[in-house]
């Protein structure tokens, strides 16, 4: 191939070149802004219509500690009673969003997609999941509407304590699960 000779080496920077660079910069800025606004359009998502809180029955309907948790498919959560109290476990696997199933034989939660497992209180046992099951906020209200017990994620209370609840009136104490308030499970060590 023939070697090309540079006929006029560039010397310094002239007015026209400065203008050209500014021209390019301005075009890029305008295009970036247009992309940003378009992104705002594409990203807009309609608000979910599903309810944000569920009445999950009364304290009398709760599974006893150690029993299989009760499923609430509409809210995608499971109600369980532990020594600490009532907890609402998010039924979505912390790995990749599959819905956990209850394995009656092993008495564990099992993920049908990648095999993660959790015990009845949502604690991580095995599999690729990065943390224990997440929990939703739980309130227990009496017929007058007053909150008898509740979770307090900020204070680290992850289950609504039942210690003070009156067993005789348990059929009138309703459990309200708020699926907008969620505490992430403990990460796997």
């Amino acid at each position: 191939m023939r070697k090309t000779e540079i006929s006029h080496p560039l010397q310094g920077i002239d007015r026209r070149e400065i203008l050209a660079w500014i021209w390019l910069l301005a075009a890029t800025a305008a295009a970036t802004k247009a992309t940003q606004l378009t992104y705002g359009f594409v990203r807009a998502s309609r608000a979910a219509r599903q309810p944000t809180s569920f009445n999950a029955g009364t304290v009398a309907d709760l599974p006893s500690p150690g029993d299989a948790p009760r499923a609430f498919p509409d809210g995608r959560f499971w109600l369980t009673q532990t020594q600490e109290g009532v907890a609402a476990l998010d039924g979505v696997c912390t790995h990749l969003d599959c819905l956990l199933g209850w394995d009656e034989q092993a008495h564990e939660f099992a993920c049908p997609c990648h095999g993660s497992r959790f015990d009845a209180s949502g604690r991580y046992l095995t599999g690729p999941a990065p943390r224990s099951m997440d929990r939703f906020a739980v309130k227990i209200v009496n017929p007058e509407g007053a909150v008898v017990a509740s979770t307090d994620f900020a204070a680290g209370v992850q289950a609504a304590p039942l210690a003070g609840a009156d067993v005789d009136s348990s059929a009138s104490l309703h459990i309200i699960v708020d699926i907008t308030l969620e505490a992430t499970g403990a990460p796997v060590a």
Binding site: D103, E104, Q105, A106, A110, C111, P112, C113, H114, G115, R117
Partner: peptide, 9 residues
């Protein structure tokens, strides 16, 4: 592979 199902299931 690796997904343990209980034997009954």
């Amino acid at each position: 592979y690796g997904v343990v199902m209980s034997s009954a299931v």
